[in-house]
């Protein structure tokens, strides 16, 4: 059996073990008096790291949808936002604006995931039969519609201020800032690693073979007896639910949600991360995302040493990101670690 041959074997199990270990150590920091100390120079890295592991769940879900099944979802941020808002509104206490119901956070998180999955189901039910580019338009429009709903229904969603007073379970347990950051990145990172293990198992199994067959040719897949609509809907809903989970965790980490956190910028970042790393390869899309977010981190330092104003620098950063995307499409259309034959983009 060759390397190309995907056996449903132990791949992804290391991620599972690492994920459980992270959760365990993170739990130790959160629940016991154990303390960690962090040089202040590293704060920014850990903070970007936390955003990375949250976005990691987004990119893994998107990779399931696009990388494996070929569903073009240009509105992934909407599921992230819906998960975050649902969690925030249910769990928040005494928000300055919008609805705050004050339910226990685990329930709120669960509802956040379900809400995102339901929205995914609605979008699938209406649009999953559409061809690639049309689905892209529908998802993009869905994201924009929800964005303006969040901004404009101030009484419900708090307008531009958003929902404040969302409980922060880890912050509530750990007073010390260093320990809190470490515990947060370990817990959320652990969940991302478990997600990685789960999607790897799914796509290594015969299940993933059907998804990749749909990406290759849906009619052939149907003619050998697979209900492709069911698989496409499942892939879409699973991706949406993962984004909802990421959103809920984000709300519970951040303590507040606002429309500014859920702009199209999020969708763009994870798309570029996925394409840069190489679609249809879970570890590659995470690495691609790390590169693009690392670039942002580097450029943050760059701002302090360049003699230009913040606005100019921000514009310049976008130019660099655009150039990277052009370079990837031109020179490595399958991404850095992607397989050109598997993605059908022979150079």
């Amino acid at each position: 059996m060759s390397a190309l041959d995907r056996l449903p074997s132990g791949r992804g199990d290391r991620a599972l073990i690492a994920g459980v270990a992270c959760l365990f150590v993170g739990g130790l920091f959160a629940l016991t008096p154990l303390q960690a100390s962090l040089p202040s120079a590293l704060y920014v890295f850990v903070e970007v790291g936390i955003t990375f592991v949250i976005y990691g769940m987004l990119v893994l879900g998107l990779d399931l949808q696009y990388g494996h099944t070929g569903l073009v979802n240009f509105g992934h941020v909407v599921f992230f936002a819906v998960g975050a808002y649902a969690t925030a509104m249910l769990a928040a206490q005494d928000s300055f604006s919008g609805i705050a119901l004050g339910y226990p956070w685990p329930l709120a998180l669960l509802v956040g995931v379900i809400a995102a999955a339901l929205l995914g189901l609605v979008v699938s039910a209406t649009s999953i039969r559409l061809r690639d580019d049309f689905l892209a338009i529908v998802t993009l429009a869905t994201a924009e519609i929800f964005h303006s709903i969040f901004v404009n229904f101030e009484g419900v969603f708090g307008g531009n201020v958003g929902i404040l007073g969302v409980p922060r379970p880890i912050a509530a347990l750990v007073g010390d800032a260093d320990t809190r950051l470490i515990a947060t990145i370990l817990v959320i990172g652990g969940i991302t690693l478990i997600t990685l293990a789960a999607v790897t198992r799914l796509t290594d199994a015969p299940y993933g073979r059907v998804l990749r067959a749909i990406r290759a040719d849906e009619l052939v897949t149907r003619s050998v007896g697979k209900s492709t609509i069911v698989y496409k809907t499942q892939a879409f809903v699973y991706g949406a639910a993962l984004a909802g989970l990421a959103g809920g965790l984000f709300a519970l980490y951040n303590g507040a949600v606002a429309p500014g956190f859920f702009t199209i910028q999020v969708t763009v970042t994870i798309w570029i991360g996925m394409l840069l790393g190489g679609a249809a390869n879970h570890r590659a899309v995470l690495a691609g995302l790390a590169i693009i977010m690392g670039l942002r981190l580097v450029s943050r330092f760059g701002l302090s040493v360049t003699p230009v104003s913040g606005d100019v620098f921000a514009a310049f950063r976008l130019v660099v990101v655009g150039l990277i995307l052009i370079a990837v499409i031109r020179f490595r259309p399958a991404g850095i670690w992607g397989d050109p034959q598997e993605l059908g983009v022979d150079q």
Binding site: D5, R212, D217, T221, G344
Partner: peptide
């Protein structure tokens, strides 16, 4: 053919 899949995976599918 499912061009982005190997001969083996085409048949196994």
């Amino acid at each position: 053919e499912l061009e982005t899949m190997t001969v083996r995976d085409n048949v196994r599918l």
